[in-house]
């Protein structure tokens, strides 16, 4: 059980608890000499109790003002999931349908279908850490890895807006990899690359990417949204066409296979196939993942106020029972030699 306060600055008032030793709420009675009054243990104890009650009252009220609570600790738990970066193609062609047309009526663009299915996917994986990156001409870090699902959904929601120009997959992958911690074999990193076009990665960048994959260790899922009539990942080349420039998708696929990482490619030609591919990713990426959970908090402010009532009641009772000491005639007689003579 952990205890804490929300307004710790209120605790600067705590030194006020010494006040009962400096001042008293009770009436002062002037006594000629303290030696006149015999030592009285009961009175001494009463004095201690009243001072303690005063200190307790002040201390508890100050504590209550600082809003104390119990619990609220974050605990680490092990669930199933992974650290997953969604790397989304935001080039203009993603806004067309799988048939390569501008969506009309009830038709769904590639970006909208992906968005809808990714939202379901995220909802099914409560313990994953999600990050979102986008790429067109330049890579864009949309959201760093986070467990705030609302923010991830808001980022995915924005992914079917009007896209930009080109498809620069290599720089996008570099960006996605940089979002993971390097050299952490205990974490499971996954990149889900969603794109509708291949791109030629120049040999120099190929080597850089290979090194980055070795450093950050990430599984790669390539969800290729194939538009009707365009080239696919698994096409066999016609004679004389087997070059990266003529068939960028095929060469991208071949390059990914040489990375030496777990790599899966899915070629989807309809929203149904996208759904099937995402379902497979969901099934494959189930690893132990440490996630944090915040335990519920219990507010103790009310208890502190209630507890403060008890010593206040004691103080009040003491105040009401205060006796008025007026010197008794015998005492006066003792003190006045003339009276003694008279007696």
């Amino acid at each position: 059980m952990t205890l804490g306060v929300d307004q710790p600055w209120m605790l600067v008032l705590l030194p006020l608890v010494v006040l009962p030793w400096l001042r008293s709420p009770h009436r002062r009675t002037a006594v000629g000499s303290i030696a006149v009054v015999p030592a009285d243990h009961l009175s001494a104890w009463l004095g201690h109790i009243l001072r303690g009650a005063g200190a307790l009252t002040i201390g508890l009220i100050v504590l209550a003002l600082s809003s104390p609570y119990a619990g609220g600790r974050t605990v680490s738990r092990i669930g199933t999931g992974a650290q997953l970066v969604l790397l989304l193609d935001r080039s203009g062609s993603m806004n067309d349908t799988f048939a390569g047309r501008t969506p009309a009526g009830a038709e769904e663009s590639k970006a909208s279908a992906t968005k809808r299915l990714l939202r379901e996917f995220i909802g099914r994986r409560p313990h994953d850490l999600f990050g979102v990156a986008a790429f067109s001409t330049a890579p864009m870090l949309v959201l760093p890895l986070t467990d705030h699902q609302d923010a991830v959904l808001a980022a995915v929601n924005a992914s079917d807006r009007r896209g930009l120009d080109f498809t620069n997959i290599a720089r996008g992958l570099g960006m996605a990899l940089s979002m993971f911690a390097a050299d952490r074999p205990d974490e499971h990193h996954v990149i889900l690359l969603v794109s509708d076009g291949g791109a030629v990665i120049d040999p120099h960048v190929q080597d850089q990417l290979r090194a980055a994959f070795a450093r950050h260790r990430a599984d790669l899922y390539f969800l290729f949204l194939r538009t009707a009539g365009s080239k696919g990942l698994f096409d066999t080349p016609a004679p004389g066409e087997d070059t990266p420039q003529a068939m960028p998708e095929r060469f991208l696929h071949l390059y990914f296979q040489t990375l030496g990482i777990p790599y899966h490619a899915f070629q989807a030609e309809s929203p149904q196939q996208v759904e099937e591919a995402i379902r497979q990713v969901d099934a494959l990426e189930r690893y132990p993942i440490t996630y944090t959970e915040r335990l519920p908090r219990h507010d103790l402010t009310g208890w502190a106020y209630a507890l403060a009532c008890l010593p206040t009641l004691v103080l009040l009772a003491a105040k009401l029972a205060e006796a008025r000491i007026t010197p008794q005639p015998q005492v006066l007689a003792v003190m006045s030699p003339r009276r003694r003579k008279a007696a």
Binding site: A134, V142, L143, P144, T146, H148, D150, A151, L164
Partner: peptide, 21 residues
């Protein structure tokens, strides 16, 4: 053109994510 990264999210609840972005 403006390029939307994410739609408005609650900043008090998702502060860490938004600040990271």
């Amino acid at each position: 053109v403006p390029f939307l990264l994410f739609e408005p999210v609650e900043v008090c609840r998702d502060y860490g994510a938004v600040a990271g972005a």
